[in-house]
Design a protein around this nucleic acid. Structure first.
Length: 906
RNA sequence: GGGCGAGUAGCUCAGUUGGUUAGAGCGCCUGCCUUACACGCAGGAUGUCGGGGGUUCGAGUCCCUCCUCGCUCACCA
């Protein structure tokens, strides 16, 4: 075996072998739901953009999913991890438009069909690269089922969903003010228009009152440019300050037109001056006010947010401002107001401004016609199902966020003014104005036979991805085998950013179209950040390319580091400037595993070893029994950290709602077992026996192979490559056998009776500590005298272990006066003769210090035990434990005092 | 502004229903190339568990309050 592990070559070869053997492929017929003999376990991969490239966030997200899926695959489930991409309407269209711009062209120059074709070609050629990259980090996804939102199958599902919801009265066309991105030139949903706190200014503007002499009101606004679209001023109906003004008219500055002063409850008397300008076409609330008061709706901005006189605007926008960008116009209008002495004052004002989540442009509220999904009816079952325990979210605190969103849900704008996406399946008849919503393309009006034209818009990308758990399994074909075998799925793993965009909507879609939640567990992991806790991003240049990490240290090192560092819901901090240090945990661990394997394989030989069950307990040494008991503990702790995999009877009980998926705990337990127990203790203890050709040597080989085999199984989901490589090399492996589908360990549930090994460990630790205390050269042999008789046999039997690990020889008492003293917790005393080396005064000082400490502890212990309220109120178990502790400490105190008497003469 | 969460070793985080000497990894210090491993081995140091108050026999853990960060929602222009 080479002294260095070659991650690159090994990983490539193993991944290919797994894929070739179909290890990752989910087989519907094996699912118990369609008569098979395995529980299905399904994870739907959050589809990355088809144009995306892998970043650390993807690396983390997919590693988590892979760990879970590999675990369940080994545990005997029919595991299916279903991958895919989405077409990312806005993002992908942006990419192509940028290309066109570089060629001096616009999408309109190409025309819709040519543009869509060009985009599709681009996606065909370069898209899905990320799926290739996911393989490099070991993702065991079922690539035979790779899905794409714009594929014919998923497009079919999208259209079916739209039509069904329309037929159920849950989709409608609305005329209202929506969020508009002037850069992407499309409307956005509420979720896509995200609030950011910004320092703005609040401008107080004077509007003269018509028909009075010099009377005026002051209006406060943050967006003076919209005043050109004002149609009224509003005050609160009960605001006495302005009661007399209601019904009068004010002069709108700059536009120089008269607008009414109205009363409406919407106005907040406390804010600003208590007078609000009403701009129905450029503010959603003003639009509502406008409807109530039957006001006109002048539009004064173009789609790309330049001032202009559009619908109903007359000549409100003066010639000088036409074509001027909104922010530029703001400055100019403020200046003009100042010059006209109409700006009373302006003050700093911190407020939340919505930005486009794709390009960060300030969103412009804009009046338009859009298709909406009525969400309340969809949210109800999603909320009810959650409360019944059909869905849980980890970590728990996100559950409140989910509930709050569901309870305050608002209708979902699903139209996008783009060309790249699923075209809305609605046709309008020009002749009779009929609106036709159809599963099939429509060529003539179904009512009058007239010519029809399809709605120009496409659907929000999320309108296709919210169907992912059902559409990827074959919906709406209810006879689909995959749907029957694999729906509902199990875990959904994601970051919190898309809880509403995607997760909540998938749950609604699951209930709406399948009458069941799409998954029972939502696992929300943290964000990858740099050392300054900034989120890693391409634009900040603080990202880490996971493929760089794979090249440098291997995929396993990446995976281990990520999983070991991932507390429930906690962020992962990595230093992009120091990959060596950031990934040290994984790299060190992988190397350690390799070296354990190297030692083991070099010492156990090629021949088969006996199975543990075939070895009678009498043939096992104490060390054997100890490591087997530790294995049992590791198995049970790992399984407990990971599971339960699914709720019993489909509903989470309160007490199990928060159990499982504690990945870092699982990783730490497995690491501790193989490193601190197998390598540090068992391997050391077994070295002597491995040399011998006896039956006991055979037993040692068997146990060593067994515990390493099982350690590799426990670790495989986290570090699949190196564990598979080592496992393949173990004696007795057959061709075509894969650790990736080996059985997940179960406890042996035998009584190992190995507690005495702890005494040996304590003795070894104490001797090592003593050597360090006395600065005894590492190579120097020392001697130890056993002062107690009750453990004599134990120590004599294990003299080789003690000798190897501490360079100490057990000897008979020689009458040496000057000895260092070791006192084990069970009362065993060991003397280490150190003639000439021992510093009696120092030794005495050490023991006296300990006596003082023990006495202090005893004092508080006794105080507690004499406290009637403690003994009567504390649980009997606790009190008993304290009594035991008191006895132990008293004995220790006695022994130390006696020893002090012998050595120190007082 | 509403809601939620976090503040534990230099750093990143564990700490299960309150049980009394608070843990891990990385980093740090000392000594070791001990024939699997220096990406290692052995030993070691480091915490008024954010501040204050309270409940309790007992508080990192429960309650109140303050401070500091973070997340999330939101139509006060």
């Amino acid at each position: 075996m080479p002294p260095q592990y070659d991650a690159g070559a090994t990983e490539r070869a193993l991944y290919e072998a797994w894929e070739r053997a179909g290890v990752f492929t989910g087989v519907a017929n094996r699912s118990a739901r369609v008569g098979g003999d395995r529980e299905p376990f399904v994870v739907i991969m959050p589809p990355p953009n088809v144009t995306a490239v892998l970043h650390t966030g993807h690396g983390l997200n997919n590693t988590v999913q892979d760990v879970i899926v590999r675990w369940r695959r080994m545990a005997g489930d029919e595991a299916l991890w279903l991958p895919g991409t989405d077409h990312a309407g806005i993002a992908t269209q942006n990419v192509i438009e940028k290309q066109l711009a570089a060629e001096g062209k616009s999408r309109n120059d190409l025309g819709r069909d040519a543009f869509v074709k060009r985009t599709a070609d681009f996606v065909d050629k370069t898209g899905g690269e990320i799926l290739q990259q996911l393989r490099a980090i070991g993702s065991s996804a079922d690539w035979t089922r790779t899905a794409y939102t714009l594929s014919p199958e998923l497009s079919h599902a999208v259209r079916e969903a739209f039509v069904q919801l329309y037929e159920r009265g849950l989709i409608y066309r609305g005329h209202r003010v929506i969020h508009w991105c002037p850069r992407c030139l499309t409307s956005l949903s509420d979720e896509e228009a995200q609030h950011t706190e910004e320092d703005g200014r609040l401008y107080h503007i004077r509007y003269d009152i018509i028909g009075t002499r010099g009377k005026s009101v002051t209006v406060a606004t943050t967006r003076p440019e919209t005043m050109l679209g004002d149609v009224a001023l509003a005050v609160h109906p009960e605001d006495e300050r302005y009661a007399k003004l209601v019904g009068k008219k004010a002069l709108l500055p700059i536009a120089n037109i008269e607008i009414p002063i109205i009363a409406d409850e919407y106005v907040d008397r406390e804010f600003g001056t208590g007078v609000v300008k009403i701009t129905p076409a450029h503010d959603p609330n003003d639009f509502e006010v406008g409807l109530r008061h039957k006001l006109p709706v002048p539009v004064v901005m173009t789609p790309d947010a330049k001032m202009d006189n559009l619908a109903d605007a007359g000549a409100r926008v003066p010639a000088a401002l036409i074509g001027v960008d909104r922010f530029d116009a703001r400055k100019r209008i403020v200046k003009q107001l100042e010059e006209g002495d109409l700006l009373v004052k302006s003050e700093n004002h911190r407020h939340a401004v919505r930005h486009c989540y794709r390009c960060d442009t300030v969103v412009e509220p804009r009046l338009s016609d859009q298709w909406f999904v009525k969400m309340k009816d969809l949210a109800e079952p999603a909320l009810a199902g959650f409360h019944k325990g059909e869905v849980r979210i980890l970590p728990e605190r996100w559950e409140a966020v989910y509930v709050h969103w569901m309870e305050n849900i608002r209708d979902w704008n699903i139209s996008r003014q783009l060309w790249w996406g699923h075209r809305i399946p609605v046709w309008y008849c020009d002749k009779c104005s009929e609106t036709i919503v159809s599963r099939e393309d429509v060529t003539a009006c179904t009512r009058c036979g007239g010519a029809v034209r399809q709605d120009e818009d496409v659907l929000d990308t999320w309108f296709s991805s919210w169907l992912f758990p059902i559409s990827t399994l074959g919906w709406p074909d209810k006879s689909s085998k995959d749907l029957a075998a694999f729906y509902p799925t199990d875990d959904l793993v994601t970051a919190s950013e898309i809880l509403f965009f995607w997760v909540a909507r998938m749950i609604m879609a699951g209930y709406a179209f399948m009458d069941a939640a799409p998954f029972h567990t939502v696992y929300i992991h943290g964000t990858v950040r740099d050392t300054e806790h900034k989120k890693m991003s391409k634009s900040l240049g603080n990202g880490i390319d996971p493929l760089d990490v794979v090249r440098l240290f291997g995929a396993d090192a990446l995976r281990y580091t990520v999983i070991a560092g991932l507390g429930m819901g906690a962020d992962l901090v990595l230093d992009p400037e120091d990959l060596e240090r950031s990934f040290a945990p994984g790299r060190n661990f992988v190397t350690k595993l390799w070296n354990i394997g190297r030692f083991l394989l070099g010492n156990v030989g090629e021949g088969d070893v006996k199975s543990v069950s075939s070895i009678p307990t009498e043939s096992l040494t104490l060390a054997d029994r100890w490591i087997l008991s530790r294995l049992d503990a590791a198995v049970s702790e790992c399984s407990a950290a990971l599971g339960p995999a699914r709720p019993a009877k489909g509903k989470w009980k309160t007490e199990e709602r928060q159990l499982g998926l504690r990945l870092s705990e699982y990783a730490e337990t497995a690491r501790r077992f193989v490193w601190n127990e197998v390598a540090d203790w068992y391997v050391e203890s077994v070295k002597g026996r491995l040399q011998s050709q006896t039956a006991d040597g055979e037993v040692a080989r068997s146990i060593l192979v067994h515990v390493f085999d099982y350690a590799l199984r426990l670790l495989h989901p986290i570090v699949p490559f190196i564990t598979e490589d080592l496992w393949q090399r173990l004696p007795g492996r057959e061709n075509g056998e894969f650790l990736a589908r080996a059985k997940w360990p179960a406890e042996m549930a035998r009584s190992w009776n190995a507690e005495q090994f702890e005494t040996l460990r304590e003795a070894v630790n104490s001797l090592r500590q003593l050597r360090a205390d006395y600065s005894i050269a590492p190579g120097k042999q020392i001697q130890a005298v056993l002062a107690s008789t009750k453990v004599r046999e134990l120590f004599e039997t294990h003299a080789d272990i003690i000798g190897r690990m501490t360079r100490t020889q057990l000897v008979e008492p020689s009458g040496s006066e000057e000895s260092a003293h070791i006192l084990l917790s069970d009362g065993t005393e060991i003397l280490v003769p150190l003639d000439g080396m021992i510093d009696v005064a120092k030794e005495c000082e050490k023991m006296r210090t300990e006596v003082t400490q023990v006495e202090a502890q005893l004092k508080s212990l006794i105080g507690r035990l004499n406290n009637e309220s403690f003994t009567s109120k504390a649980p009997a178990k606790v009190v008993e434990g304290e009594r035991q502790k008191q006895q132990d400490l008293e004995r220790r105190c006695e022994q130390l005092t006696k020893r002090i008497g012998e050595l120190c003469g007082s």
